[in-house]
Design a binder for these strands. Structure first.
Length: 435
DNA sequence: GGAATTTGACCTGG
DNA sequence: CCAGGTCAAATTCC
């Protein structure tokens, strides 16, 4: 795995000053970009905290502000259930139970708070999100001070509050409706395949703390999801805290143990139910192949079992392509002809062409549709390498980390002449102000 | 009984 | 030849 190779670099430290490390090891390149700003400016360098904290804090701020306004509207509305939810692709072996929660938090009912069921929990959720927002603002206010200890403490509080928010959101999401039906994804005791999403903020807060400790860089996180694909360039990939609920329906058709990987890789087609719902199940797979070439591979990351490496192949030409996000991706793929994953294509995410710098919302692979949980909402991820690495996700459990495309990746490492791309902070500001 | 998943076999590209 | 992707019958779930 690339990640492992990165971490095991044998290169000498002095090589880090080279623009490209002599050994070509990725870690050297990473450390160069991380350490150079520190070496170039005397400590305490007043912009150090800003450079370190502002992108993530801005992400948190933008997210929490949106969440505070959107979370409740995304909650299940009372009314009859229209149809049985289509089972999303979720490898059983990859199912987890949200064990990454840092601490157990008593639910409002257990704490003697509002007893009005969903309404009470909605209020608790709103309160939690408001608290998160306040903490993020405080974090922003401290950016100009070199107070890593205070920032660390604040991050811990943030993580705790976010965990609580997500717990509440889940419990609300699972509240019984007026007609007694369960909301999709809710707490259906009979559903053994239900999906449990981990808290989305654990990761970003960990990342924030990690950056504070000079241990890592967001660029490393972007690297973690890079892997060569036998079939050629995947049209999109990302790492996530859970198998994505990307708004589409997937059917698993295979699982394979991968040499050197801890966890097997699962593959899924788009289900053809939307196209030919009357066909018997034995034809579904073939129909899916004939109707839509999109496939999805999911594998747990070796380094962090809570992360899932998701790779999308092929073009959506089935009925589900009508999904707004899928349509958007399709449009982006068409000019470059990336429809077939086996073809060598240029990046569908060229920043200068795709409106990132114009303030448009960054693209996401297929659909990361707003999920039914209260934690749904836009989530801009920042990358230290520049705007072309940014992405926004819209999934409950989704913390998009590394959507990338191989040409971009290659360009990133072959054209790493600007280790100070962090200086585009104002662009970040502008970008997120428009999201 | 239909839908979804599992799993061993087969296929394919390097 | 081998690793990884896919097929499809068998199995499981609801």
């Amino acid at each position: 795995m690339l990640e492992r190779a990165v971490l095991n670099s044998p290169c000498a430290t002095d090589a880090l000053t080279e623009k490209r490390c002599a050994c070509g090891n990725l870690r050297c390149i990473l450390e160069e970009t991380v350490e150079k700003p520190h070496a170039a400016f005397p400590a305490p360098f007043p912009r150090w905290p800003l450079r370190r904290y502002q992108p993530l804090a801005l992400s948190l701020h933008a997210l929490t502000e949106r969440q505070a306004s959107k979370a409740l509207t995304a909650l299940p509305r009372p009314g009859p259930s229209t149809r049985r939810p289509v089972q999303r692709f979720e490898p059983r072996a990859l199912t987890h139970t949200g064990s990454c929660l840092r601490r157990e938090v008593a639910r409002p009912r257990e704490r003697g708070e509002d007893m009005d069921g969903c309404d009470g929990e909605k209020r608790a959720l709103a309160a939690q999100l408001a608290q998160v927002l306040a903490m993020v603002r405080e974090l922003e206010s401290r950016m100009d001070q070199d107070l890593p200890a205070a920032a660390r403490e604040l991050c811990g509080e943030l993580a705790s509050s976010v965990d609580r928010s997500i717990r509440i959101a889940r419990s609300v999401d699972g509240c019984p409706r007026g007609d007694g039906s369960q909301h999709p994804g809710g707490s259906n005791a009979q559903s053994k395949r239900r999906q449990v999403q981990p808290p989305i903020f654990c990761f970003i807060v960990d990342t924030l703390i990690e950056q504070q400790n000079h241990v890592s860089d967001m660029r490393l996180l972007a690297l973690r999801s890079f892997r060569c694909s036998r079939k050629g360039t995947p049209c999109a990939r990302r790492q996530d805290m859970a198998p994505l609920d990307d708004g589409l329906s997937w059917r698993k058709y295979g699982q394979k143990d991968i040499l050197g990987a801890k966890y097997p890789r699962s593959a899924a087609h788009v289900t053809a139910a939307h196209v030919t719902p009357s066909l018997p199940s034995c034809y579904l797979h073939q129909t899916a192949l004939a109707g839509c070439l999109a496939t999805k591979h999911v594998q747990r990351a070796d380094g962090d079992p809570l992360l899932y490496d998701v790779v999308y192949h092929g073009a959506h030409i089935c009925a589900q392509a009508a999904h707004p996000a899928a349509e958007q991706l399709s449009r982006q793929l068409q000019p470059g002809g990336l429809a077939d994953a086996g073809q060598e294509q240029s990046s569908p995410l060229e920043p200068e062409n795709e409106g990132l710098q114009a303030g448009l919302e960054p693209m996401t692979p297929y659909s990361f549709a707003p999920a039914t949980g209260a934690a749904a909402g836009g989530f801009p991820l920042l990358s230290p390498t520049g705007l072309e690495w940014q992405l926004s996700s819209h999934t409950v459990g989704g913390v998009g980390v590394g959507i990338e495309h191989e040409p971009q990746f290659a360009e990133f490492f072959t054209n790493s002449a600007d280790p100070f791309q962090w200086e585009y902070q104002d662009d970040y500001l502008n970008l997120y102000a428009t999201n």
